[in-house]
Each structure stands twice: as structure tokens, then as C-alpha cells.
Design a protein around this nucleic acid. Structure first.
Length: 464
RNA sequence: CGGGGUGUGGCUCAGUCCGGCUAGAGCACACGGUUCGGGACCGUGAGAUCGGGGGUUCAAAUCCCCCCGCCCCGACCA
């Protein structure tokens, strides 16, 4: 709880981002460089993310399971492009039980290989398909540069791995889960993401095609917020995941994988946060509303607390915190909860007790304009309505910001200038050379190819 | 790994160029009092092998040599 003001978002975005995380007590630096400790407040947000996703996974027929952390090196080597893509960032265990291991083990950077190995044992018949399994856990990638939540060496995520009988089913699964992510991002996290397909150079190591949802951060940079991969038969062939079809023919399965990580928390912070700190979408916020009782004397306290306790009871359906800390002033508490992004603050003081009111302050509208005095009667209904309203307002604001920073580029000059401070939406012929040229000239990368095409000329903005 | 910075109580830093007495400040922390509707104030107190090692000197946070850590930019990426 530092007393100093945050750096403003516009003045130093990355410093602002770090300070918001540290001061809101979401996470902390670990003793190992590049790693992160997720503190209870941050983890609580992650649990809400997990719940929202798990509901969706179960609705689409998936079940959870757990696979091992350590994977024999030889497993990764079975899929050529997979090992090529991941080998530079592997953490490798060479010793165990005080002795050098015959075969090194890698700490999983992702689990396609072990899961593929298990699937090959489990799947024998078309009756076994589809296999729809998800795992919650953490993975390790030896990143060169790290940032809290956005890119740490160990990160928490879920990874779904499915096996199907046909290419069509595999693709349908890939797109279904992409849509699940988009639905989650938009409706739970209030992130107006754009779902689409990655270019061939940007796709996952070992995939036929990768799909992603891309979100725009407050500095207009893009953040890949979840991915869904159509693995074709690449992993099925590497691990011999085969089944007998109805005509007794041996067939390779078609597999998919999809994942969403704690990076989404970074996305939420960067998208919604402001100069006062975090702004959390009500549907995911660990604390949706905080009651700050205000009193000076024991007598005032005796008048205020019964009202606070009554309101606490009435707000039973809301994730609520009553801040009864002594020794800090109400003004301090206001700022403290704003830093933590709590969507609604309810102030109850002696004047409110007298008038039968409370002060209601919404986090997404800074300053006085976000504060109103309302009757204690019907407070629960009003709070619930406001939480819905705030959720919608955050999405609307982020959508407006995103759209204001996406520019159509029909020719190369326009494209080059537009990507300096926003996203360009441009036609592309699909050629790697054009993609490389853009990256060379502007350092901008292709993000994804939206599933819904935007119209326009249909002529490549790079090569004409 | 390349380029640029930086290392001094828990945090942010001053002091280093030009060596000098007991290493300072603000915040945070503990206790007491006054406060309390937008980050309170006063007093008292605790807390530091000045990143590590070596050297020069009567004397080193400060000068010299070696090592280490961390931060930012680039290559990599959920």
C-alpha cells in the first residue's frame, strides 16, 4: 500500500502496468528471475476466469484431467516442427535422485506430446471418439524477456486436447473452442476481441492452422489472448493415435488443442485500467462491491454498523467486502479499493443513517460523476443493475477505443503509416514474402485473419 | 547474446565527480495522542555488513581491479 501516486497510464504505460499489479497485490516477483507469485487477490480473479471457462467447457462436453509435468525429451522430438519451435525455450531436467538421467526430461512447455502418447493407448475404436479432455495447470517456457502476467517463465493456463474421427470434426472443434474463447472474452472479461486465423509463419509449432482471439491494449498494441489449433493428423501420426473405423480400416485421428492463460489477466488490466489503478469487469471481479462504513466516534459507529450489517445481508448475492479496518481514513480506503479495481463502492456514514441513504460510487466513472446518493431501500436491486451496467459500459468503451484505432489500409504507404499507432486492417495475398516485408519495414506483425471478412478491395495492400 | 542504465533500511532516492567525524531524507512499519464523508497530522521508536571480493590510503558508499544481480531496448513468445 504505497502512498505515492501511480505513474499515469499515458506517461509510462509499462511502469503503470507493473505498479498496478504490485500495489493491488495481484502478484509479486518470485525469487527466480522471470517467474511470478500470484497473490490471493490475483488468484481469486483467476479462479473466476476458471469458473466461467469451465462452465463453457462442460456445456460443450469436455471433462478435466491431469497429465504429468515432466516429459521425456524423446516425446518432443517425435513431431519435427514441434520440437523445432519449442527447443529454444525448454527447461530440461538432467539429474534426478542425485544421478544423471539417461534421458533428459523437459518441464512441459505444453502437453500435446504426453497427451498424444496417452491417447494412442486409450483410443482403439471409432466408438472411443471423440476424446474431449481439458487440463488446468502450469507450463514452463524459458523466455528471454518476461513481464508479469503477459509473459512469465512459468504460467498458469488451461489446455484442451481433443481427438476426432474426421478432419471436419477436428476443424469444427477448433472453431467451436475459438468461439468459446471469444464469448468468454467479450461477455465475461469485457474484452472486444477479434477471432481469426493466424498466418502460416505465426501458427503453433506442429499445427496445420492456428486460430486466435486478438485484443487491443490501452497503448493500441495487440495481445494474443487465447489460441485454438487444428493439429490435423500431425500429432496423430507422430504418436500413432489410431482407431478402427466402422469398416474395420485403421485410421489416424484428427486432433486439436486450445489454451487460455493467466495472460488474460494482463489483458484485463491493460484494457480497462486507468490512472487510479485497476478496473475489473464485475462478472470476474473477486470483490464486486465494497462497503466503507464511516464514523468518528463509538456512538456514530453504533449507529452505522447495524445499517452496514443489514445491507450486507440484503446484498447476499453480491461478492461483497465490508472494509472495517480501523486506523485508516475513509479517503484512504476509497483510493485503496479503486486501486484494486472493485466495480462498486458503497459508503455508509452518519448522514446516510439519518437520511436512509448510501453513497454509491462506480469505479468506471472517475471522480464525482461516478458518485451518487441513493436510498437504502431497494439497494440490492440497484447494485445488481449497476453491476450489469458497468460490465456493459466497459465493453462499450473498449470497443469504441479499439474501433477508433483500427484503420483500413488499401495501399502500402497507408499501411506503413497506420501501424505506427494502431492496427491496420488490410487485404493480404497470403504470401509469406509480403508478410515478411511488412515486418521488415515497420516491425508490425500479422495478428490474425478475421473469420468475418471486412469487405474492401480484395487487392493485397503490400504487393498490389 | 548485442546496445543502454543501475545497485545505499521494506520501497523511492540523495550523497560518489572532488575520500574525512556517528551514512541522510520521504514513504511504509511499531507505540501514544489528535484526526476520520477523497490518499490526515504531531511526537517517539525500530530498521543499513552502502551488491560481493580484492587493492590504494592514516581514513573508502566515494578512487582502482575482478565478479555478481537487477531494469530498459532488440531477437523469442500464451
Amino acid at each position: 500500500m504505497a502512498d505515492e501516486k501511480l505513474p499515469t497510464r499515458s506517461e509510462n504505460y509499462s511502469e503503470w502496468y507493473n505498479q498496478v499489479i504490485l500495489r493491488s497485490e495481484m502478484a509479486d516477483y518470485a525469487p527466480v528471475r522471470g517467474c511470478m507469485v500470484v497473490r490471493p487477490y490475483g488468484w481469486s480473479l483467476w479462479e473466476n476466469v476458471q469458473d466461467a471457462l469451465d462452465r463453457r467447457f462442460k456445456d460443450t462436453g469436455h471433462v478435466n484431467a491431469a497429465f504429468p509435468l515432466l516429459i521425456p525429451m524423446s516425446f518432443l522430438e517425435k513431431e519435427k516442427s514441434h520440437v523445432q519451435g519449442f527447443s529454444p525455450e525448454l527447461a530440461v531436467v538432467t539429474h534426478g535422485g542425485g544421478e544423471k538421467l539417461e534421458e533428459p526430461l523437459v518441464v512441459r512447455p505444453t502437453s500435446e506430446t504426453v497427451i498424444g502418447y496417452m491417447y494412442s493407448k486409450w483410443i482403439k475404436s471409432w466408438r472411443d471418439l471423440p476424446v474431449l479432455i481439458n487440463q488446468w495447470g502450469s507450463v514452463v517456457r524459458w523466455e528471454m524477456r518476461t513481464r508479469l502476467f503477459l509473459r512469465t517463465m512459468e504460467f498458469f493456463w488451461q489446455e484442451g486436447h481433443t481427438a476426432h474421427a474426421t478432419a471436419e470434426e477436428g476443424l469444427a472443434e477448433t472453431l467451436q473452442m475459438l468461439n468459446v474463447y471469444a464469448d468468454f472474452a467479450i461477455n465475461e472479461a469485457a474484452l472486444p476481441v477479434i477471432p481469426g486465423r493466424k498466418s502460416q509463419t505465426e501458427k503453433f509449432a506442429g499445427a496445420v492452422n492456428s486460430y486466435s482471439i486478438e485484443a487491443m491494449m490501452g497503448d493500441t498494441r495487440a495481445l494474443q489472448s487465447a489460441t485454438s489449433h487444428d493439429l490435423g493428423q500431425n500429432f496423430a501420426k507422430a504418436f500413432e493415435i489410431q482407431y478402427l473405423d466402422q469398416s474395420n480400416q485403421l485410421q489416424y485421428c484428427w486432433t486439436t488443442s486450445w489454451g487460455l492463460s493467466t495472460r488474460i489477466i494482463g489483458a484485463i488490466i491493460m484494457t480497462h485500467g486507468d490512472d487510479q489503478g485497476l478496473v475489473l469487469p464485475p462478472r470476474l471481479a473477486p470483490i464486486q462491491a465494497v462497503i466503507v462504513p464511516i464514523y468518528r466516534s463509538d456512538e456514530e459507529r453504533a449507529n452505522v454498523m447495524p445499517v452496514v450489517n443489514r445491507l450486507r445481508g440484503e446484498l447476499a448475492g453480491v461478492r461483497l467486502k465490508v472494509d472495517d479496518r480501523t486506523g485508516v481514513t475513509p479517503g484512504f480506503k476509497f483510493n485503496d479499493w479503486e486501486m484494486r479495481g472493485v466495480p462498486l463502492r458503497i459508503e455508509v456514514g452518519p448522514k446516510d443513517v439519518e437520511k436512509g441513504t448510501v453513497a454509491l460510487a462506480r469505479r468506471d466513472v472517475p471522480g464525482r460523476e461516478g458518485k451518487q446518493f441513493v436510498s437504502q431501500d431497494g439497494l440490492a436491486a440497484r447494485v445488481n443493475d449497476l453491476l450489469v451496467e458497468i460490465q456493459a459500459a466497459l465493453l462499450a468503451k473498449a470497443t469504441a477505443f479499439r474501433d477508433a484505432n483500427i484503420h483500413d489500409a488499401e495501399d502500402y504507404e497507408t499501411l506503413k503509416s497506420v501501424v505506427q499507432d494502431g492496427w491496420a486492417r488490410a487485404w493480404w495475398c497470403g504470401d509469406d514474402a509480403c508478410e515478411a516485408k511488412v515486418k521488415e519495414d515497420t516491425r508490425a506483425t500479422t495478428r490474425n485473419i478475421p473469420l468475418e471478412q471486412p469487405g474492401g478491395t480484395g487487392r493485397c495492400a503490400v504487393c498490389g
